[in-house]
């Protein structure tokens, strides 16, 4: 058990021990969600600001409910309905939110590094809820939590991440978390979206989907990030599905105990056959449930460590 951090900015800088601490803590918070009274007073009197400069429903709602279940007060702030539209800088917006005595600022932003930038001058704890194509740490934490919960371990498992890796912050955070916990990571997708440079992180890269998923214990599917692609990276959606989509025919040739994951939102019929998304091997909705527990754990852990004991470290 070790956690001395004030911010959660990325997975890259976490140790395996710190990741495990989050997962163990999340297990306790998952149990809270299964009780008749699903609320605990751990963050009573604290204020959490959801600063979502880029659209999100699932992550924002998950953080909002996590904060509420810890008895914190929550403010939701979206770019469309804010002074950011009137030309206010991110720094000024964040400073104004802090002037309201916010204790946590959860930020989603299209620019990589925005959470790190805020953490340099804010007294509040900053949580990265997705920054550009860089990282989405709580998504990776909930993914490894789900894997550990259902497989009993992460180390030694074959995890295949299939889809748009280049533009995916989910992929980057997952790769870091999986490698730190000892999983074997295979990346697959069109060559334009899965460049060989990822081999330098310690992943296996292949552009042949049947081979990528044959020995997989986990298949984590990623959506094509149309909003981040400056030009078309593959000829057509239909061709993508033909070459890389998880179809029933391809699924039939995977391990019988393989788990199918997806961070959502799903594009049914594109990266996955619609029926497969709802099949018993699909754990997509369990990921959502676990996301709530993981975000409660992150808030709980960051809330500590501000007292005298922190001075020693």
């Amino acid at each position: 058990m070790s956690w001395n951090r004030k911010h959660l900015l990325d997975i890259e800088s976490l140790t395996a021990d710190e990741i495990t601490t989050v997962l163990d803590t999340a297990r306790a918070f998952k149990a809270v969600g299964e009780r008749a009274i699903k609320k605990v007073p751990a963050l009573r009197g604290k204020t959490v600001v959801n600063l979502f400069v880029e659209p999100s429903t699932r992550t924002r709602i998950s953080f909002e409910l996590a904060a509420q279940r810890l008895t914190a007060d929550v403010i939701n702030f979206t770019a469309e309905a804010s002074s950011l539209k009137k030309g206010e800088t991110l720094k000024d917006t964040a400073r104004n939110l802090e002037a309201l005595n916010a204790d946590f600022i959860i930020i989603r932003h299209s620019a990589s590094g925005a959470p790190h930038f805020l953490s340099r001058f804010l007294k509040a704890s900053v949580i990265n809820a997705g920054d550009g194509a860089h990282e989405h740490p709580t998504q990776a934490l909930l993914d490894v939590f789900t894997i550990r919960e259902l497989k009993g371990r992460v180390a030694g498992l074959n995890v295949t991440i299939l889809g748009d890796i280049l533009y995916s912050r989910v992929a980057r955070s997952n790769i870091w978390a999986l490698l730190k916990l000892g999983a074997k990571v295979t990346l697959c997708g069109p060559a334009t979206l899965v460049p060989r440079v990822f081999e330098e992180m310690g992943c296996r890269v292949t552009h042949q989907v049947e081979e990528a998923i044959a020995e997989a214990d986990i298949i984590n599917l990623l959506r094509i990030q149309h909003e981040r692609q400056r030009k078309t990276m593959f000829p057509s959606i239909g061709e993508y599905t033909n070459l890389f989509g998880l179809t029933q025919a391809r699924f039939n040739r995977t391990k019988p105990d393989v788990l199918v994951m997806h961070p959502g939102p799903i594009n049914r019929g594109v990266e996955i056959d619609s029926e497969l998304a709802d099949c018993p091997r699909s754990v997509i909705l369990q990921q959502v449930t676990n996301g709530l527990a993981v975000r409660m754990a992150v808030l709980f852990l960051l809330n500590g460590g501000k007292g005298p004991q922190e001075l020693a470290t």
């Binding site: 058990m1 956690w3 001395n4 601490t21 163990d24 803590t25 306790a28 918070f29 709980f300 852990l301 960051l302 809330n303 500590g304 460590g305 501000k306 007292g307 005298p308 004991q309 922190e310």
Partner: peptide, 8 residues
């Protein structure tokens, strides 16, 4: 508030 978050 006064200590590192405890193990649960």
């Amino acid at each position: 508030d006064n200590q590192v978050a405890p193990a649960i």
